[in-house]
């Protein structure tokens, strides 16, 4: 293991011995990015395309009403919820000490922070390892997101993650989820339900007090790292 002990320095020394001049990559120019006339329609289209289901509801109570229409939900033995204000499960997550105990979980419901129109992804930030394990062990997953928290694309998404202090405030896990788990490893035949959830239900809850869609000012992206040049006209046309 002596050789391994020296590897760090040896690798860094070797990399440093060959200096390469390269300017920082230009900041993404927000003017060049896609805009959607109807982000909700785009989100619904894309999430459906990847096998998820979107429900836009006005009241939180509608979530359990709609889920009640699924036989798999009515027949569920184990339901866990980390959104008790919307739905209470029959498993108290606070009392689950080991994620393995969720092995037979049928349904799980969790809040999502925001949803992304371009790819149907929802950012989910579980509060701890049990909630995190729940996301992948459950047979069916439900994510609830305020309808106001719908953004257009991933540039906006990562700007928000930066604002939220992802990675700078301490250890954490966060994930974009876009659809139920899937595979096409056998002859490129798409099969929904690989190792994770078999179905994904996304509820966008319309809180009428807020604006319909969260949008950014045009300069939101450019302002994040002022030390880098902004790619504007000089980036050249494609």
């Amino acid at each position: 293991m002596v050789a391994i002990a020296n590897s760090r320095q040896a690798i860094l020394d070797r990399l440093k011995s060959i200096p390469i001049e390269q300017p920082p990559a230009p900041v993404v120019d927000p003017q060049r990015l896609v805009r959607y006339d109807d982000p909700l329609a785009k989100f619904t289209e894309v999430l459906s395309f990847v096998g998820g289901q979107v429900h836009v509801v006005e009241r939180p109570q509608q979530v359990s009403e709609i889920l009640g229409q699924f036989p798999a939900f009515r027949d569920a033995q184990q339901v866990a919820s980390s959104a008790p204000e919307i739905l209470t499960g029959n498993i108290d997550l606070n009392k689950v000490a080991d994620p393995h105990l969720l092995a037979y979980l049928d349904w799980a419901i969790i809040p999502g922070r925001f949803a992304v129109a371009e790819n149907g992804a929802i950012w989910v930030r579980p509060t701890g390892p049990i909630e995190r394990a729940m996301l992948f062990l459950t047979q069916h997953l439900v994510i609830v997101v305020p309808k106001t928290e719908l953004i257009e694309h991933m540039h906006e998404a990562y700007r928000r993650l930066g604002q939220d202090g992802v990675g700078t405030s301490g250890p954490e896990f966060g994930i974009f989820i876009s659809g139920p788990s899937k595979t096409a490893d056998i002859e490129q035949s798409l099969v929904i339900g690989a190792h994770g959830c078999r179905t994904l239900q996304v509820f966008l809850i319309d809180d009428s007090s807020g604006p319909a869609v969260a949008t950014d000012g045009g300069d939101g992206l450019a302002g994040t790292t002022p030390d880098r040049p902004v790619a504007g006209d000089s980036a050249g046309r494609i």
């Binding site: 990847v50 790819n119 149907g120 992804a121 694309h153 994930i175 876009s178």
Partner: peptide, 25 residues
């Protein structure tokens, strides 16, 4: 943002992978 937009679209023709997990610690 740039890479998550390009990766799955280039790889399998999906808008993004089902799971894009961010492990910090």
């Amino acid at each position: 943002a740039v890479f998550t937009r390009l990766l799955a679209r280039s790889a399998t023709g999906q808008p993004i992978t089902t799971y894009t997990s961010h492990f910090h610690g």
